[in-house]
């Protein structure tokens, strides 16, 4: 999910660069682009951390633990109190 915000802002910069703007308007939108570019980068950092956290969770041996739990339940049932 990371990369969408900054690439969106990059696309806007590219579109703007390919067009002639009146100086005052151009400068004001350059500042705006700087602001949203900075915010996009910050949001991307958060998204990247989220992805790292999800990766860590997905690497947990969930299926093995479930199989082991089922085996323990069978062993417990076999005790025969």
């Amino acid at each position: 999910m990371a990369g969408g915000l900054t690439s969106g802002v990059d696309n806007i910069i590219r579109i703007k660069k390919g067009t002639d703007w009146k100086d005052g308007v151009s400068k004001s939108y350059d500042l705006w682009l700087e602001d949203i570019g900075y915010l996009a980068e910050q949001a991307e950092t958060v998204f990247a951390e989220t992805e790292a956290s999800i990766k860590e969770i997905r690497s947990l041996p969930a299926a093995e633990l479930e199989a082991e739990y089922d085996r323990l339940v069978r062993l417990y049932a076999e005790v025969g109190f």
């Binding site: 969106g8 696309n11 806007i12 579109i15 703007k16 390919g18 067009t19 002639d20 703007w21 009146k22 308007v25």
Partner: peptide, 17 residues
């Protein structure tokens, strides 16, 4: 006078945003 293609560029920027 604004530069050429400005109106179209703004439309593209708007769509991209």
């Amino acid at each position: 006078v604004f530069g050429t293609g400005l109106s179209q560029a703004i439309e593209e920027i708007y769509a991209q945003m």
